[in-house]
Computed example of a mutant assay.
Amino acid sequence: MATLLLIEDDPLVRRGFQLALSRHGHDVRTADSGEEGLREFHSARPDLVVLDLMLPGIDGFQVCRRIRAVGDVPVIMLTAMGDDFDVVGGLAAGADDYVVKPAQPSVLDARIRAVLRRSAGHDGVRVHRDLHIDTTALTVSLHGRPVPLSPTELRLLLTLSRAPGRVFSRQLLLEEVWEHDYLGDSRLVDNCVQRLRAKIEDVPAAPEYIQTVRGFGYRFGPV
C-alpha cells in the first residue's frame, strides 16, 4: 500500500479523491494549502505527492520545487483543463506527470501506479505488475517464481524496462544489448524477443510486457 499526500484546496475535490484513492488501496494524507502540504510532506514521508498547482499562499509550483530540492519523491500535478502554461511550468518545476481536472479517480489511480512503477527501479528493483526485476542481483521473478534468463535475454529486458513506454528501434537495441556499432541483423533482436516473451509473458502471442511497435521496434509495458 502506497502512502500518498494529496495537496488540494478545494474541499469537495480533496475529499472525493481521498475517498476514491483509499478505496483503491492507498493510504491518503491530505493538506489544503502549500504551507500545510510541505509540513505534511516532511512528517508523513509519502511515497508520492498529488499536487494542485493553484493553491493559496505558496502555490503548487513552489511546493514542487521545494520537494524536488530535498528528494526524488514522485509528484503528479493537477492542472486546469486546457492550461498548457500550467503543464509546462509544472513539468519544469520537477513534476513527473500531470492529470487534467476534472479527472476520474480511476484515471488518477492509473497514473499514480504507473509513476510508482517507474520510480521502483531507483532502489534496484523494478516492479511491473507480477514481474519483478532486481537490477542489483540480476534476477527476475514472475508471480513470485524465479525466471531463468540467458545473459542476452536479461540484458534485453533490463534495457527495455529501464524506460517503460519508450520505443526502442531494433538498431538501438543491437547497439545497446549486443554492442553492435554497425547495421546488424535485426533477426537477433526478434529472436531474442520471442525467447524472452516465452519466459515472462502469460500469453506470448498477446504480450503485455514486450510490445511490438510495427515497422520500428519494441517498447516495454505496462506503462
Rank of each mutant, 00 (worst) to 15 (best):
M1Y: 12
L4T: 09
L4V: 07
L4D: 11
L6H: 03
I7G: 04
E8T: 03
D9Y: 04
D10K: 04
D10S: 15
L12M: 14
V13G: 02
R15A: 15
G16D: 03
G16S: 09
F17K: 01
L19S: 13
S22N: 13
R23E: 15
R29D: 11
A31C: 12
A31R: 03
D32V: 03
S33L: 07
E36A: 15
G37V: 04
L38H: 14
H42P: 01
P46R: 10
D47I: 03
L51S: 02
L51K: 01
M54V: 08
G57F: 07
I58F: 05
I58G: 04
D59P: 02
V63I: 06
C64I: 00
R66N: 13
I67F: 02
V70A: 12
V70P: 04
G71H: 05
D72Y: 01
D72R: 08
D72T: 09
V73R: 03
V73L: 07
P74L: 07
I76N: 04
T79N: 01
D83I: 03
D84P: 01
F85T: 13
D86V: 02
V87C: 05
V88K: 12
V88C: 04
V88T: 11
G89V: 00
L91W: 06
A92G: 15
A92M: 14
G94W: 02
P102M: 12
P102F: 12
V107G: 02
R111S: 07
R111Y: 02
I112W: 01
R113A: 00
L116R: 03
L116K: 02
R117L: 04
R118E: 13
R118F: 05
G121C: 03
H122K: 13
V125P: 11
V125R: 15
R126W: 08
R126P: 00
V127Q: 09
H128Y: 11
H128E: 05
H132Q: 12
S141A: 11
L142E: 12
L142N: 14
H143A: 15
H143G: 13
G144S: 06
G144Q: 09
R145P: 00
P146V: 00
V147K: 15
P148M: 11
L149Y: 05
L157K: 07
L157A: 11
L158N: 09
L160P: 11
L160D: 10
S161R: 10
S161K: 06
R162C: 00
G165L: 05
V167K: 06
V167R: 10
S169Q: 08
Q171M: 11
L172I: 12
L174I: 08
L174D: 06
V177S: 00
V177M: 00
H180Y: 08
D181S: 13
D185F: 08
R187N: 09
R195T: 06
L196E: 10
L196P: 06
A198P: 08
E201Y: 10
D202C: 11
A206T: 08
E208A: 06
Y209R: 14
Q211D: 04
V213N: 02
R214A: 04
F216Q: 14
Y218C: 09
R219M: 13
G221K: 01
